[in-house]
Amino acid sequence: MVTLDIAPLRSFVAVAAFSGVRQAGLALHLSRSAVTGHIRKLERELGCRLVEPQGRGIALTSDGEELAERAREILRQHDDAVRALATPEADDLLVAATEHAAEFLIPVVVGLIEHRFPHRRIQLRLTRSAKVRALVDDERADIALMLTGPTPRSVRVATIPSQWFGTPGTPPDHLVLFTEPCAVRLQALTTLGNRPYRIIKQCHDLTTLLSAARNGTGIVPLPRIGPAPDGLRPVPDMPALPDLTLHAATSPRVDPVTRTAIVDALRERLTEKTPALTTT
């Protein structure tokens, strides 16, 4: 019977979240070749292709989508068991964030922590904002980025505009959405009101969501964290989506000076990539 190792699964989930190998490697402190090796190892063991090229990034195959969903649950159960039963590593820091922050914001946070705490190991969890909020409420996340309401320890980082994206010719009533819970999905459906629509595909990860939109499956609502996704264009004549608020929360294990530096660095990055963002 095939046995899947945790390290390759962690690399695969990161690749799915970042839509590419290079950024996944940077986040996991692995070389590009190591991450690629993990993906190939999984493909050999399972006897199927998991990823395929798409533009300048990658897309998940149907088997890859299936594994990504299951791998997230495997990693969650594994990490929860380790935290509950194993002797904690005092120097570990858990960074939890919405997947929408993966490509443009997580490298900023990880880079800053590595600079300030070179001997600390960073654990990364990219998931939905609601689950990030749960990690904050349970006092398990040391640094958290989320598109949800504030927590007692959170700081408002910026107002994030949202927009509909798709490809030319895609029917505007065909939607591609994250599965629930999803703050962007909820706001998008509320905005549509009585306007007719069909949810053509529901996705568990950002790579699958963007791939479906690029393939013309449907249009997708996205927060504008950074420039427009590669291969997608704003969709005209759609109801305007409400803004979202990005909050950052830190645990008592993160000192106030570092917390301020993280928030300032995030604001600078957002302003650099998306000038329309406001931070007040």
Rank of each mutant, 00 (worst) to 15 (best):
L266M: 05
L210K: 03
E66T: 14
D230N: 11
V95P: 09
A248K: 01
D92K: 12
T190C: 08
T36S: 14
V235Q: 07
A68S: 15
L26W: 00
R259P: 03
A240M: 06
P8H: 06
Q163D: 09
L177R: 02
L112C: 11
R22V: 12
L270R: 06
A183L: 04
H29Y: 04
T280K: 08
G216N: 04
T260E: 15
T87H: 14
P196L: 10
C203P: 07
P171Y: 08
V132W: 03
E114G: 13
T280C: 09
P171I: 07
A213C: 07
T36G: 10
G57W: 01
V35T: 03
T61H: 08
S33I: 04
A71K: 02
D264C: 06
A96N: 05
L186E: 13
G47A: 05
I200A: 14
E272A: 14
V2T: 15
P196C: 08
G149V: 00
I200D: 12
D173G: 10
L270E: 08
G216P: 03
G169Y: 01
Q187I: 02
G216Y: 00
T61G: 11
A16Q: 03
A97S: 15
V263L: 05
R267H: 06
A144E: 02
I219V: 15
A240L: 07
V136P: 10
I113P: 09
V235N: 09
A212G: 06
D137G: 06
A7H: 07
L277T: 14
P275T: 02
T151F: 02
T278M: 09
T207A: 12
E180Q: 14
E114C: 11
P107W: 09
V21F: 14
R49Y: 05
E43D: 10
E73M: 10
G149P: 04
G111M: 07
V2R: 14
I113H: 05
R214S: 11
R70M: 11
D80C: 08
E114V: 02
G226T: 02
